[in-house]
Design a protein around this nucleic acid. Structure first.
Lengths: 151, 151, 151, 151
DNA sequence: TTTT
DNA sequence: TTTT
């Protein structure tokens, strides 16, 4: 009943988005996001530790990602953990964990640009999942087909 | 631009919800929520500290709150900080901070009940703001008028 | 640089904690946590979806978990995503995702009890990772060995 | 008991930090942070809404803020809501809400620079409250006096 | 004004 | 008072 499954990430993209257009007008984008933390070990040496996350975006969000996100960019992400399970060739149970992105925001102003798309000023920097909540994570002009999400 | 303003609270209600039905079929519920933390001070004495939060819910959520939430209950809340500003009688600038609730969940199973409403088992315990995101914070059978929110 | 990797979960334990005492006075507890969301599909039928999470707690937290957490209990958890990678027998790259718990709180008052430990009233319900931040996630009387965490 | 009071903000600083050195070697920094959301109203017009937050940082964090944060910078913040209450001259109850910052991160790479301090690459961009949790929100070389916080 |  |  009534659980909470929430992930908040802030990091840098390890590659450009991989976007697939599926049957039924669906779109999915996959991203690799690195979150790095650094701390001092007991000897006072600085240690960096990077965690890589597999992100999955659907519908209109996937399209925004395809259009604006690039390798190296810093983004803020909210989503939830999703585990896919299957059996591999040897009949072994396998699973794979992904972050299903519910909203994301590009950070840092002009860290990439060059050809800063005017469309970005019209809402693209912040994208929210289907049926945007008017007052919280408003989405741009996206008429995503998110209702068709196969989750 | 593209900011994040997110609040996560888990605590107990200090009173029953106060609900107002407004013109235009709008409903608002106000809640008082206590979040308590306890720690040991430098003398090893346990100290409890309670913070009181003013919560505000609109539309279908307000109705769910009115129906199910009671003084003493423990709830989990997601929302955002909202500040109202005005001038008082002396022309002084005043402001008041509220948490605009975007979703909440009742916790702890049967901590109140007595007449545990069957509806509760059918989705009421978790309520989300207007236009529920299908895969994240699904709302019950609420046809809220959240589009009319005057925020 | 300077990333964020944060997980917030609220759900029920699928089993009692599995606790291992390691060399060097270290303790680790593993938990299975279910977060369930329910929504209506496009036909209006209610669908429930449960995600299972592997939680990992270390040191004093593991001990608190061992002592107080039981199958079925509802808990709130904050932590971060951690991926372990290794090669399996066939030389295949494998990985496994866990949630490294940084703090947790037991919910719901007396939903289990039976032999409600008096100690629970003295701080155990809320446990934080090593070196508790005095004002935020205060831990009980735990002198955990968290400094020895092999992360 | 055992509550959660958590705030996550991502926005831009409206001014340079205001830092005060107090007796007993304490330091406090106050920041004004703007979080902006934009959405389309029912007529399809884009609306921007900015919320201003009063942030409060103590000890080593305040010093990091003083040294590195500047008006206009984009930062990510975690903290908690704190309300101060008092009586004003007319004997009226007044209160003021602040965000007590527990950790923050500077965003966006080189949005200020000019004299990008080398120290920034050595840990300053991410600062955590007293007694840093080794694996989660590691702090720089700060030996803050956070134990003396009057919270 | 809640809860433990 | 920030940012886009």
């Amino acid at each position: 009943m009534a659980g909470v499954n929430k992930v908040i990430l802030l990091g840098n993209l390890g590659a450009d988005p991989e976007v697939k257009y599926l049957e039924g007008d669906n779109v999915v984008a996959n991203l690799r996001l690195a979150t790095t933390e650094s701390y001092k070990d007991r000897n006072g040496n600085k240690v960096e530790q990077t965690e890589w996350h597999d992100l999955e975006l659907w519908g209109g969000q996937a399209k925004v990602a395809e259009q604006y996100l690039k390798k190296g960019m810093q983004i803020y992400v909210e989503g939830k953990i999703k585990t896919d399970s299957w059996q591999d060739d040897q009949g072994q149970n396998r699973k794979r964990v992904r972050i299903r992105v519910l909203s994301f925001t590009m950070l840092g102003g002009r860290q990439d640009s060059g050809s800063a798309p005017p469309a970005m000023d019209q809402g693209a920097p912040q994208a929210a999942a289907s049926k945007p909540q008017p007052a919280s994570t408003p989405a741009p002009d996206l008429s995503g087909d998110d209702d068709d999400l196969p989750f």
